[in-house]
Write a protein that binds this DNA or RNA. Structure first.
Lengths: 190, 190
DNA sequence: TTGTTGAGATGACAACGTCAACTGAAACTG
DNA sequence: CAGTTTCAGTTGACGTTGTCATCTCAACAA
């Protein structure tokens, strides 16, 4: 027996998945409501039963991506972490990694704030709370707040520059990993 | 006497200016070829006499923006610069500044690489060469290449995070300026 | 059973990027 | 000078897109 709310939830899932798949495969322009609907097995304007408009659908995709990053960080925090700076390194490289494997999704996560940015920002906030914990284990509770902002910004900058083709390796002679390591080396250890 | 090449050049200028103005005023979605043409005093498909397509027009806007940043850096390099780290600070804060005043243009400058990214990248290359000089004056010629990549990435990350609404001040208790100063303070002075 | 609800389908519309065909004046050629 | 070419610009049209109004119909409530 399939209830109505069950099929509705399943459709919503299929819509978000389809949008994400199209985004990965062909970039933002490839995400059309018609194609999203087709892949989800419904028709072109069915998404309007689940999202206010196209922007809201994309916001849902971004929110899920942030949640996944949050889960990864949560795993890092949960571990014993003999070497705190190793956990920090993994956290920063996780950003570089997702940027490389899913650049369009990464861009979406940092897209221009929507009319009502609360949904995406709230998901990002949890992520940054966890990140703050990881940083505190390295530089201490007191300095974590300022260094956390710098570390997050730098890792994002490295990632975003790299997927934009602006991190010219022949000029800087540095990969994303090397820049992350260089940054961590500059930190005052607690 | 107005020659044909003169009016053509003038039209091209007007098109680029109109596109930039529309971008600043209403974001990427507000830049339609029809409106660009109208503001430039020509009609909807006139831009195709000057640019291959809409993407090429936007690439021209981005290229000009990179040139302006390059000019600003050139002025910094030309000065005597009693304190090299002050020049570096100004260079980094220039990125934060343009991001704040013209966020949509800033995003365009770091947009996804086009099919043929050579045009934009070449303009960015000059900018980064100048930036390399400024960095070398602070950390020395040898270390400039690795630290330059880090500094550029970090400043971009701070700026991009800020205009994306993801640099949560209540969490990190740090403005863009403070993060830039913090980063500079970490550098090994030559 | 009958009425209500809400997910989905369909038709339609305006706006958009883009192209083909056309126009006219400047620039060149003899 | 006349004839020809070139090319910036216009207009008409086409396919695609996001979105809305309307309709359908199965799940639920009474």
């Amino acid at each position: 027996m399939v209830t109505r709310v069950e099929t509705a939830a399943a459709t919503r899932r299929a819509l978000v998945d389809a949008a994400g798949a199209l985004l990965d495969a062909g970039g933002p322009d490839a995400v059309t409501l018609r194609e999203v609907g087709a892949r989800a097995g419904v028709s072109r304007s069915a998404p309007y039963r689940h999202f206010a408009d196209k922007e809201s659908l994309l916001a849902a995709v971004a929110t899920e991506a942030w949640s996944e990053v949050g889960d990864a960080l949560e795993a890092l925090v949960a571990e014993p972490a003999a070497r705190p700076e190793q956990a920090l390194r993994q956290a920063l490289l996780a950003m570089v990694e997702i940027g490389r494997t899913r650049p369009h999704l990464y861009r979406l996560m940092f897209a221009a704030p929507a009319a009502d940015p609360t949904v995406v920002v709230r998901a990002a906030e949890r992520t940054q709370d966890l990140f703050l914990e990881i940083v505190a284990a390295v530089v201490g509770q007191g300095a974590a707040r300022q260094y956390g902002g710098l570390l997050l910004s730098s890792a994002h900058g490295v990632t975003h520059l790299e997927i934009s083709g602006h991190l010219l390796e022949h000029k800087w002679q540095a990969t994303g990993e090397q820049l992350v390591d260089l940054l961590i080396g500059l930190l005052p250890m607690d």
